[in-house]
Nucleic acid binder design. Structure first.
Lengths: 224, 224
DNA sequence: GAGCGATTTGACCAAATGGTCAAGATGCAA
DNA sequence: TTGCATCTTGACCATTTGGTCAAATCGCTC
């Protein structure tokens, strides 16, 4: 009857979970991402998550003792992946290449993990009840660091002047739009990022527009 | 005991509601926008909407017989306002002026009606269960019409080539980002659109970036 | 294969919530 | 003032849902 919750009591080995725990937590988190991203926190039900994970509600509650705990774990699980691309912006690279690669990566993320994008958007739109501290802490530091990188590029004349943070917001907003609003995109164009042609068309349009906007030319490989 | 619902039985005059109905429906829709935009459809409760509207739950249900009816009415109420700016894009104007004005207007909307923006975003992210027909109908026609306007500008050499629909998406995504993600914007910059200085800074940055991106120069008045 | 903790589940509970209903209060025309 | 439709509400109900619990089953070590 020991609860496994959160960082869990590491029953046997040092820091690891048992094979069963590993598998079930993973199944739960996948199901939770699907459910939360589709219905939001309030609209999701523990029972549906359990069903999608292939276990009883009671058993799910054995691994995560509350709905909120599932939600937090799901958020934590995707957050690292979600913010990874920005970390790669390299001050020593050429702005055009770096930004083109960043934009492509972000659009790729929107294509590969639209649910994660929507979950994150949902959380922030509700006022970021769970992740506000992260936004104000880690994310803020990261953005300030990368803003400095952009500022350096501007000061060394490598690109046009712009408020770095607004450039970052524009890249986030635009790239994530294709995931979060994919239903609308599909309704208006008949296609979405799952279509490889539309994907490349989107990368080309967005990269062209934004790089052009700061006085850069898209590299031949388009950031690929 | 007659229900007032939807388009309502116009009890007395021709097409009009009684003074009391007018007032209460308006109070309800305001409260509903606040509640739905904050909590989403599932997270919102009829009781809280009623409380915020200053009446009993029962009375609210007298005006809108189901939660879904309130939600639909709220959406319908904001949708027209929300899509209005795009309609003003004028094929006969100069692209720079027209687009600068459009961008400013959209950011102004994000500043003035952030709740409407979030409600709309929420609805679309959940798969647009209520407004999909509108997206595929009226909105699609409108976007196609305006895409043609942009296409004309391109063909007459007034602006650089870009896929018009992607330009529209980028403008939507970016301008609405400042409303939908305002908590994040605030966490990262310490400010949001309610700060007049930040508002103008945002208009300048976004307008500069996007107009530049299609080979245009921002008009002196910045679209104001 | 015995023993014991880890895992799994169905039965159950309490709170929240959307919606109904009958009765009372109010506004207004004659 | 009377009469009637509009408006308003508290009491109430059925369902959904997050979470508890005791009992059963499983898996692994000795």
């Amino acid at each position: 009857m020991t609860r496994v919750d959160g960082q869990g009591v590491d029953s046997q080995k040092n820091g690891g979970l048992s094979r069963i725990q590993e598998r079930n937590r993973s199944l739960i988190l996948d199901a939770a991402l699907s459910e939360f991203s589709k219905k939001g926190f309030s609209g999701a039900t523990v029972e549906r998550i359990a069903a999608e994970a292939g276990m009883s509600k009671s058993n799910l509650l054995y691994y995560f003792s509350t709905k909120e705990a599932i939600y937090k774990a799901t958020l934590a699980h995707i957050l690292e992946v979600w913010l990874a691309p920005l970390k790669m912006l390299d001050a020593d690279g050429e702005p055009a290449r770096e930004l083109a690669a960043y934009i492509r990566q972000k659009i790729q993320m929107s294509a590969d993990y639209p649910q994660a994008s929507r979950l994150f958007a949902n959380e922030v739109m509700q006022g970021a009840p769970q992740i506000l501290p992260i936004l104000e802490g880690d994310l803020k530091r990261l953005v300030e660091e990368k803003a400095k990188v952009i500022e350096t590029w501007i000061e060394t004349g490598k690109m046009q002047r712009i408020e770095p943070v607004h450039l970052i917001f524009t890249i986030w907003a635009t790239t994530q739009h294709y995931a979060d609003f994919s239903i609308q995109v599909k309704a208006l164009t008949g296609r979405d990022l799952s279509d490889p042609v539309f994907f490349e068309e989107t990368v080309a349009s967005v990269t062209g527009l934004l790089l052009n906007g700061i006085g850069l030319t898209v590299p031949q490989d388009g950031g690929a």
